[in-house]
């Protein structure tokens, strides 16, 4: 039922701030970086400078496996934003990572109709230089 695909979504530079720099820099190295609280051990995503469970500032980063399964998804068939207008149909999804958190992302590398809940996927990175040309990236997922 899909129309012929014109292109995958294209990513601009992520909006990096002090709290998220480690995440986006990790993506630039091809690593999916998550946070863990040194005090209470809770893993959290999206990145924050404090633990949203115990308010500790003792946040450490670790490299996740990049493996997960599709928790839910939708095939977007209409988006009036110029960056996405030509990319429909494309898949937005929450991927359940092995480490616990879910990640909002795109699933590419297969027909939108091939995506299903529970489907194993692995991370794939698109290099997107930051505002000062530093190597950053945006993670998306492909069938495992």
């Amino acid at each position: 039922m899909s129309e012929p695909k014109k292109k995958d979504p294209e990513y601009g530079a992520p909006a990096v701030d002090q709290e998220s720099r480690a995440y986006w820099e990790g993506c630039g190295r091809g690593e999916l970086v998550l946070q863990r609280c040194r005090d209470c051990g809770t893993v959290q995503h999206r990145p924050r400078a404090i633990c949203a469970t115990c308010l500790s500032s003792g946040i450490e980063h670790f490299v996740a496996s990049g493996r997960g399964t599709v928790y839910t998804y939708s095939v977007v068939r209409q988006n009036q934003m110029p960056a996405f207008r030509e990319a429909v149909p494309y898949v937005v999804a929450y991927v359940q990572l092995e480490e616990g958190p879910q990640l909002l992302t795109n699933v590419v590398g297969c027909a939108p109709e091939a995506v299903s809940i529970g489907m194993p996927v692995r991370v794939d990175f698109v290099p997107t230089p930051g505002p000062r040309g530093e190597p950053l990236g945006v993670p998306r997922f492909v069938p495992a």
């Binding site: 999206r46 839910t72 998804y73 939708s74 988006n79 009036q80 937005v92 795109n106």
Partner: peptide, 30 residues
């Protein structure tokens, strides 16, 4: 089906992926 970006910091983890308002509800339905 329009612009979903904002200046809120969490938006950085959403706006790259083209999640329209409709699709945020559609993912719940799915």
């Amino acid at each position: 089906t329009g612009d979903t970006s904002s200046r809120d910091p969490g938006s950085a983890f959403v706006s790259p992926y083209g999640m329209t308002l409709v699709s945020s509800y559609a993912m719940v339905a799915q």
